[in-house]
Structures are given as C-alpha cells and as structure tokens.
C-alpha cells in the first residue's frame, strides 16, 4: 500500500503540488485526474523518487521512502511506467523486458518473462525484434510488461493512454484494473482521459493546480456533472 502525506513539491518559486494526501490500497486502481499542469506527472515522479519533495512523506508498505533512490524503490516493488514511449528503441523486445528485473535471479526472470508473454502474446511472437518496430499500443504493453518484470506490489502508470487510439486506451486501462485485481497490486493511475480512467478505478482523485479538490468513489465523481464541468472540461 502506498500512502502520501502532506506532500508539497516546488520547482524554485513555483509550487507544483501543495499538501497532497491520499492512499492507494492494493487490489484496485486509484485514479488521479486533472487537466494539463495540474501536477499529475510531478506527483508520479516524486513518488518514484525522481524529484525530491519540499515537505511531506511518501510511505510504501509502512516504510518512509525519504532518501531512498529511484532504483532502490523499483527493487522494492514500487515501479513507475513513465509518460510517453519509455521503451529503449535500440533494444530488442526481450532485452527491454529483461532490463526490468536484472537484479533478480535468472529463474525468477524467466518465470516473469513467460508471464508477460502470456499477458501480451503480440510481444512473444516478436521478442527478437527491436522495440522501435512495435506500434504505439504495443510499446505501451512492453513498458508495462517491463514494469511487471520487477514483481511490483505498486504500479505507477503515468498517462498510459497518451497518443493512443480510443480502443487501445480502453484495453490498456482495463488491463491496469485486471492487474490490480489478479496480482493484488496497488495501481496508481494518472490520466487526462477522465472518463475511461474513472471507469476502471475504485477511487478518483481530482487534482487542480497542485491541490486535491475532490476525492471519492470513482463512479460518484463520474456522475457529478457540475464537478466535471469545473475541473475536467467535459
């Protein structure tokens, strides 16, 4: 379980996140939604340890992550799939996957690769090809597959729908829900695509200009038309 307590992050004078607190429990998707510049990516990058907060705490399975580097967080099972195509184009599909869990034993790595290939048969067929031969949706699958190689207990997905066709977006987000339930993961999903994100999430959090303006059951937020107009723009 991931807990965020009074998190404040600033870039120089600009405050990107202000006093943000929430929890992402295991076994479900927690969706953070909001417009461009709401601080969603900053939140994810701070939780992953790429940015250091000004104040507040990130706790993972009961331990405070202050001073823990990005790579150690990944090894502890807190893995971020960053925004955009984060696969390494010069690597084959198999190499990209292996990269996700190099510190684990060969046997465990092989088990995980088999699991990922079961989940994404499209990748299995082409595992010797370079990652840049894949389509956008397949590359997102590869990025998620690579994160799964770390045997995560908490998966951070930063805008996985970016630049993908609506049908693929739906597939990817449903996959996030499926992973949360089947593997008992805490999935923290950040999305601009509020409709689809709220459909797969249990809890929705609306972020606006760095502050949480609403937190509640996802279906209630989706049904609240006033709120939708005010913050989500649809």
């Amino acid at each position: 379980m991931l807990s965020i307590h009074n998190l404040t992050v600033s870039y120089g004078q600009v405050v990107a996140l202000k006093d943000v607190s929430f929890e992402a429990p295991r076994g479900c998707v927690t969706a953070v939604i909001g417009a461009n510049g709401a601080g969603k990516s900053t939140l994810m990058r701070t939780v992953a340890g790429l940015i250091t907060q000004k104040s507040g705490e990130v706790t993972f399975d009961g331990s405070n992550l202050a001073g823990v580097s990005t790579e150690e967080r990944a090894r502890q099972g807190l893995v971020l799939v960053p925004e955009g195509r984060s696969t390494i184009a010069e690597f084959t599909i198999e190499e990209n996957l292996r990269l996700g869990g190099l510190w684990r034993s060969r046997i465990r790595q092989r088990e995980s690769i088999a699991g990922v290939f079961d989940l994404f048969p499209a990748l299995a067929k082409r595992h010797k090809l370079l990652a840049n031969t894949l389509s956008g949706g397949e590359r997102q699958q590869l990025a998620i597959g690579r994160a799964l190689m770390a045997e995560p207990t908490c998966l951070l997905l930063d805008e996985p729908s970016l630049g993908l066709a609506p049908l693929i977006v739906q597939q990817i987000l449903e996959l996030a829900q499926q992973l949360a339930v089947e593997k008992n993961l805490a999935v923290l999903l950040v999305e601009q695509n509020a409709v689809t994100a709220l459909r797969v999430a249990r809890t929705g959090i609306v972020l606006n200009l760095g502050e949480i303006v609403l937190e509640g059951p996802a279906e209630e937020i989706a049904a609240n038309s006033e709120l939708r107009h005010a913050y989500l723009g649809y």
Partner: peptide, 20 residues
Amino acid sequence: LAMRASALNPEVARLCGVRV
C-alpha cells in the same frame, strides 16, 4: 545490458532498478 541501458536512457534505467 545494464551498462547499455544506462548509456542510452539513464532515467528509464533507474526506473528499472539499474544503479546508474
């Protein structure tokens, strides 16, 4: 593999648990 990943994309390598 870890060396090459660190060279090509250090941030992604770190997110994958590589001690860059």
